[in-house]
Design a protein around this nucleic acid. Structure first.
Length: 427
RNA sequence: GGAAGGAUCGCAUAGCGGUCUAGUGCGCGGCCCUGGAAAGGCCGUAUGUCCGAAAGGGCAUCGAGGGUUCGAAUCCCUCUCCUUCCGCCA
């Protein structure tokens, strides 16, 4: 949610933003409603003030009669105000975040800009296979049986692929909790951020609708799994329950940044992608994911995102997977995002880059609704700035490893950093 | 799943329809006292919102939402969370 004062003061700038974002939000309507709302608040408050004074002590019978009338009037005005308030809140909550000035302008995916490409696609002396062929050949992925049991877009991951998943998790855990290693990255990239390590968290995978709403992640609802008997949603990412972890709290500035590494299963209905990526495990209803979530001051928010991206890239490089970093354009960004980058990994089987990571800097857009505040050293309070970024979408990372490290016979070499966890060089 | 109790200002507590503009203690900040400190004394110590250039003022908030009343922390209803006991259970 945006600050209404910001909207009042930046009306034209936001209008332009929303055109670029292809958002339908109507700022004029919102501000007209805001004027009406404020006038009504003044009226109601004045009436309440009269009643508060009139009802002091033991009023006379005539006073009581008069106060009763004022009470009626208050009730009417309150009802009217409530209607305005509801519409106002709905419109306000639909206003997308403002956009970082450097954001490329574009209508859709085609407007995204490749910032850098790292690593060279490996050369093969044979036609590289797609992961589903490799997975079937080596008994690592079974989507056929999963379809019988659970339907399409589910999979059994098996044997060494499972061990590879856990190796990957161990690799990440030991890295992001290792302060000297983080320090080296910060130094190398010349970043102005704290080296405080991440706290690993296994968060709940079910969430209340109102919290999901506050995270601005409930929509599109068709994308979410809902459990009607308990009115809970299954999370689509650890972000959904990590973001609200400090809801209604005020954090001392000296305790920032707060950094979490979340590990959870993510659930997605994939309602809008019928027929897309139906083979293999690229697009499943259920997959496991490691996720960064961090809370900072306003001043530190953008640099924190740079840090998270540096970590994403470091981890990709540690696996030796070729990738490119993409700056999302205005028309392709999520509504809560101020600045968004994706990482796309090279998949030799598909001979293309596919999205494996995203990094969202949301400024105070989420924290305003979640009511997460920072008490600054100078005593002032402000809303925390929040960053969220993929560490590894594990399924897609497994795909990238399988396809990039495949041998002519379908065996798969193991990236060096993972070998100690697996106890093997090839599977 | 059943039964009972609870949720008040950072923490602990008081509060049983008007004197609550929520008291007290602790904590925190300032000042006095002191050579300095402790103790003691005095003062201050929430958030949101609206009006205002500011000073300041209005309104709201005692877990959340609704209701009764001229008037609600206090009475009624619903919900959430916590505690204890019983049952079930990885």
């Amino acid at each position: 949610m945006l600050d209404i004062k910001y909207i009042r003061d930046h009306r034209e700038e936001l209008k332009e933003n929303y055109v670029h974002r292809r958002a339908t939000a109507d700022i004029d309507e919102l501000l007209a409603l805001d004027d009406k709302r404020r006038a009504m608040i003044a009226e109601v408050d004045a009436l309440r003030s009269t009643r508060n004074h009139g009802s002091k002590g033991r009023p006379s019978d005539t006073e009581i009669l008069r106060m009763r009338q004022i009470g009626e009037e208050i009730k009417e005005k309150e009802a009217e105000l409530q209607k305005i308030e509801e519409k106002y809140r709905l419109l306000l909550s639909r206003m997308p975040n403002r956009i970082h000035p450097d954001t490329p302008i574009g209508n859709d995916e085609a407007g995204n800009v490749v910032v850098r490409t790292i690593g060279n696609p490996p050369a093969f002396s044979f036609p590289p296979k797609e992961h589903w062929d490799l997975g079937a050949m080596r008994g690592l992925i079974d989507t056929e049986r999963a379809a019988k049991v659970s339907g399409s877009r589910f999979a059994y991951l098996k044997s060494d692929l499972v061990r590879l998943q856990f190796a990957l998790i161990q690799h990440v855990l030991s890295f992001v909790t290792n302060e000297p290693a983080l320090k080296r990255i910060i130094k190398k990239q010349k970043l102005g951020v704290s080296s405080r390590p991440f706290t690993p968290v296994i968060p709940p995978v079910m969430i209340r609708p109102e919290i999901m709403q506050k995270m601005a992640r409930l929509e599109p609802k068709e994308e979410r799994y809902h459990i009607p008997s308990d009115d809970l949603y299954l999370v689509g990412s650890a972000e959904h329950t990590l973001g609200p972890i400090h809801m209604d709290e005020t954090i001392e500035e000296k305790n920032l940044p707060i950094r979490y590494l979340g590990y959870s299963t993510a659930f997605r209905r994939e309602a809008g992608s019928y027929g897309k990526d139906t083979k293999g495990i690229l697009r499943l209803h259920q997959f496991d994911k490691l996720e960064f979530e961090s809370f900072t001051t306003a001043e530190q928010g953008e640099e924190e995102q740079n840090f998270l991206i540096a970590l994403q890239e470091h981890l990709m490089q540690s696996l030796g997977i070729p990738y490119r970093v993409v700056r999302k354009c205005t028309g392709d960004m999520g509504a809560p995002d101020y600045r968004e980058f994706d990482i796309e990994a090279w998949l030799p089987g598909q001979k293309t880059y596919r999205e494996t990571h995203t990094s969202d800097y949301m400024t105070d857009y989420q924290s305003r609704r979640l009511n997460i505040k920072v008490k600054k050293e100078n005593g002032q309070t402000e809303f925390a700035h929040m960053n969220d970024a993929t560490v590894f979408a594990i399924g897609r990372t497994l795909i990238a490893i399988m396809e990039n490290y495949q041998k002519h016979d379908g065996r798969i070499a193991i990236p060096k950093v993972l070998q100690p966890y697996l106890g093997k060089k090839i599977v």
